[in-house]
Design a binder for these strands. Structure first.
Lengths: 200, 200
DNA sequence: CGCACTCTTGACCGCACTCAACGTTGGTGG
DNA sequence: CCACCAACGTTGAGTGCGGTCAAGAGTGCG
């Protein structure tokens, strides 16, 4: 009934506008979900990690495109069977509603970021978000497997500005770069502050 | 079991961080949902219209603040009773998941807008969005009951830029201003184009 | 009519974008 | 193993869009 699916980095899973043929659960790796404008401008609306659902939305058509960032493994459920399963098992539906709530809250945070934060605040917020979503100890380094271009397209910036902002955070000793895709947070409290403190 | 609730313009319904005590269905008027940063920067993450659910998210705490834009009427369901009702009636849960999907898709559109569109594209998109959400005939004017400040805080702009962008759309004959809160779309196709055409 | 508030318009400024050069990294083949 | 090369990332210089600051126009209420 459910089948496994593997993707190589940069390989697509589905595209915006296509009919939804299946639901997925990510089991390994990272995917990006994005939308495009006609002239090629791109907004990455989210990154998906192990445990996340994909295509659970009840619409008939995908509202964004999904592509692998790293090597990815997913569990695939054909749509009809998935919908049937939902009807049988109300706790599954509750689980999905739960994730939808979480994603909506994340989307709202991202709107605040995109609408009202400056470049450094966006990058600082992003690093902290990525850390929160990985299961890490206090001083484990944060993995950022995606390219600078992907980060820029997620934060509504350019590659150059992302790079400059990371450099500034490094200069201020808030983070270290262990390597291009691995960042250590040196001063979490000050990084939180640099990310733009929440009201309350 | 359900009770009615009325709000005057600018009156608050709940605040970010408060425990969720009830769910609501909007029956009349318009509300705004927003988040704040410590220094007062504000992002309006959405406007709620009749038929929309509020506080359906399964989290314990509100993730944003809700305030009336116009006079508002809502139907209020205490949280415990609402959750019980959900368990009894799976179609209610489905309905809520349906709205969550819709809202998530809208949030993703908004991220594209905030991350990648310029000022004029944002304002044009906003006018078209508002028209789509009201039940209007082809040449009915669009109601924008919220202030320019609210529009700015929704689009990640300043009041001045919103005003200038509307003026530009007016100069280009894409819209007419019948009054401060009432706009007529003159050339829908060109306005759609000015809003930044979607890929595909 | 007067006052307060919202909206619009104008002049100037600054942050992030653009364009360009350079550095770094990883993969390939000699 | 190193040389080469293409892709990615960083850094610098200059520009422009939208923000800031300020003044004026429009609106609604008492």
């Amino acid at each position: 009934m459910a089948s496994e699916r593997r993707l190589a980095p940069e390989q697509g899973l589905f595209e915006e506008g296509e009919p939804v043929e299946a639901a997925y659960v990510v089991t390994q790796g990272m995917l990006k979900l994005f939308k495009l404008l006609a002239d090629g401008r791109r907004q990455i609306v989210g990154f998906m990690l192990p445990g996340d659902f994909l295509g659970f939305a009840l619409g008939e058509l995908h509202v964004c495109t999904a592509e692998a960032v790293t090597e990815v493994e997913l569990c695939r459920f054909p749509r009809a069977q998935f919908l049937a399963l939902c009807d049988e098992c109300p706790s599954l539906e509750k689980e999905i509603l739960q994730q939808a709530s979480t994603e909506l809250a994340a989307a709202q945070d991202q709107m605040l970021l995109l609408g009202r934060k400056n470049a450094t605040e966006r990058v600082a917020s992003f690093v902290l978000n990525m850390r929160r979503r990985q299961r890490l100890g206090p001083s484990d380094p944060v993995r950022l497997p995606m390219s600078r271009t992907d980060i820029a397209d997620h934060l509504g910036l350019t590659v150059e500005t992302v790079s400059r902002s990371l450099s500034r955070l490094r200069t201020q000793r808030l983070i270290d770069s262990l390597d291009r895709h691995l960042i250590r947070i040196r001063q979490e409290a000050r990084l939180e502050e640099a990310a733009g403190a929440r009201h309350c």
